[in-house]
């Protein structure tokens, strides 16, 4: 696995006439798992789309290995950075293996079609995600959890050193959420893939992130290892939630225990 440097400098992103992310600097740590958290509409998905070259910067730039991604060829970026968007569309009647195979697009030329390399990548991706047994099934016949694993398999078949995932655990029950994050950790540890995930669940984020980025109103509030940055003040600032932070009994990472208005038996720590 070659090491890569993906960073944003003075990055401003937006839609129509609204700036969502403004003048933001960030560097994605190479070979680590980075998780971006924040309240709804804080700009975390927008940042991810910007990093993946889906949005043109209003100002500043996203740099991949020192070059602005907007100046690189799309397929060249796509050989290094893969993206699983929030709402991909499964074409009518398509089978699992066929869909995963579409991830090979950047590796094929206008005339160079399917190759043994493509076969190998698809097979490896389906094996890694445990979807090989589903290969011939149509997507429409799968459960939500299976479907999400197929999409991850497609992103893996793209065989990039960096994989960006936008809320990959949506629609999944807790078992499948953990399974998916374990899978991404496997990929990171065994193959050194750099992984960036936008995640809703703060506790899973703390457990699985090597590097945590907390965002609010289009800016980064704090970033670093979860145990270094997570405290009650941060949670209150970013999510507007009063909470206690205790060590996760399983992993030892910070665990955020919300204090609601009811069922509060102990005074704030």
């Amino acid at each position: 696995m070659t090491s890569h440097d993906l960073r944003a400098e003075d990055l401003t992103l937006g839609y129509a006439d609204v700036d969502i992310v403004s003048h933001l600097d960030v560097q994605v740590p190479d070979g680590r798992i980075t998780v971006i958290v924040g309240a709804n509409a804080c700009g975390k998905s927008t940042l991810l789309r910007g990093l993946a070259r889906l949005l043109k910067p209003r100002s500043g730039a996203v740099l991949l290995d020192g070059k602005a991604v907007q100046d690189l060829r799309s397929v060249d970026v796509a050989k290094v950075v893969g993206l699983l968007p929030q709402t991909p569309v499964a074409p009518d009647g398509i089978t699992v293996a066929d869909l995963v195979g579409r991830g090979r697009y950047p590796h094929q030329g206008f005339f160079r079609r399917w190759s043994p390399e493509d076969d190998a990548a698809v097979e490896a991706a389906m094996e890694a995600t445990g979807t090989a047994d589903l290969a011939e099934r149509p997507i429409s016949a799968l459960s939500g959890g299976q479907r999400q694993r197929v999409w991850v398999a497609m992103a893996l078949a793209q065989d990039t050193d960096l994989v960006l995932l936008d809320e990959p655990t949506t629609y999944l029950d807790i078992t499948h959420q953990v399974e998916l994050l374990d899978l991404l950790t496997d990929l990171n540890r065994a193959h050194g893939k750099t992984i960036v995930i936008v995640l809703h669940d703060l506790n899973l984020a703390c457990r699985y992130a090597d590097h945590l980025i907390a965002m609010k109103s289009g800016a980064i509030v704090r970033e670093g290892a979860p145990q270094d940055i997570i405290d009650a003040d941060l949670v209150s600032d970013v999510f507007g939630l009063s909470s206690d932070i205790v060590p996760d009994p399983v992993s030892g990472t910070p665990m955020v225990v919300p204090r609601g208005r009811h069922h509060v038996a102990t005074p704030a720590l």
Binding site: Y15, V18, N40, T87
Partner: peptide, 12 residues
Amino acid sequence: MTTTTRPPTPSP
């Protein structure tokens, strides 16, 4: 379908 053109509503 994609959500590209839908700007998120500002949170405040």
